[in-house]
Amino acid sequence: MSFLDRITEGWRKNRKPGYYENFDYHWAMTIDLDQCSGCGACVTACQAENNLPIVGEDAFVKGREVKWLRLEHYWEGEYPDVKLNVIPMMCQHCDSAPCETVCPVSATYHNQDGLNTQIYNRCIGTRSCAVYCPYEVRYFNYNDHEWDSPLDQQLNPDVSVREKGVMEKCTFCIQRIRQAKDNAKDDGRRRVRDGEVQPACVQTCPSKAMVFGDRNDPKSKVSRSLRDPRAYKVLDELNTNSSVVYLKKVEAER
């Protein structure tokens, strides 16, 4: 194909507004804060699944811990009448992600599954995506990390270990999604069944507060959950069109 043809074809294919919205899948997650107990199992599961570094005490004190999924704690009231609100915060996989536009080398972009991806090999470490992200869920590798034995034996072979100087963040366990899509193809199916793929956090959640699935499929569990009247998005006023939706905690008036 000649150069000119490639240009015209690319233009024809992508010129319509919304070429980025017609994804094959549109993975989304809902987190029911009514059901969330704040136990932190999801955090641990994420750590184990995605080869997150154990940064050590010094780096933790400096505020450099890497937690793709973190629990945000908000305290309300004065002792003894205190209340703790917990909200799990991870990459929201925004459809209009501020972090994507700012990367000078396109190391982060939207893939055909509606996921906000991070390409470690392409990243040059300007860290501007972390500044542009209003959810503060991008983590930078300030140095190379080491896993003490025997922890180095349990690294997940499906996930790359990141080197110093690159940005990383929640991927919705893209290795599992890819595996599920491969399985579906091997079985001769066109699409992944609902519930066939679960990120580590969703799989682990003991109270089943997290639901993951394809938003494009109106019958999927996550789509039903999205229609819940309690559904809201964090910092929705910034128009990031995030893919993670929280279900509000409902409390009786006191």
Binding site: R64, N143, D144
Partner: peptide
Amino acid sequence: YGIGAAGMNHP
């Protein structure tokens, strides 16, 4: 060593 030689941190 990596950018960790500087004082930057998460936010």
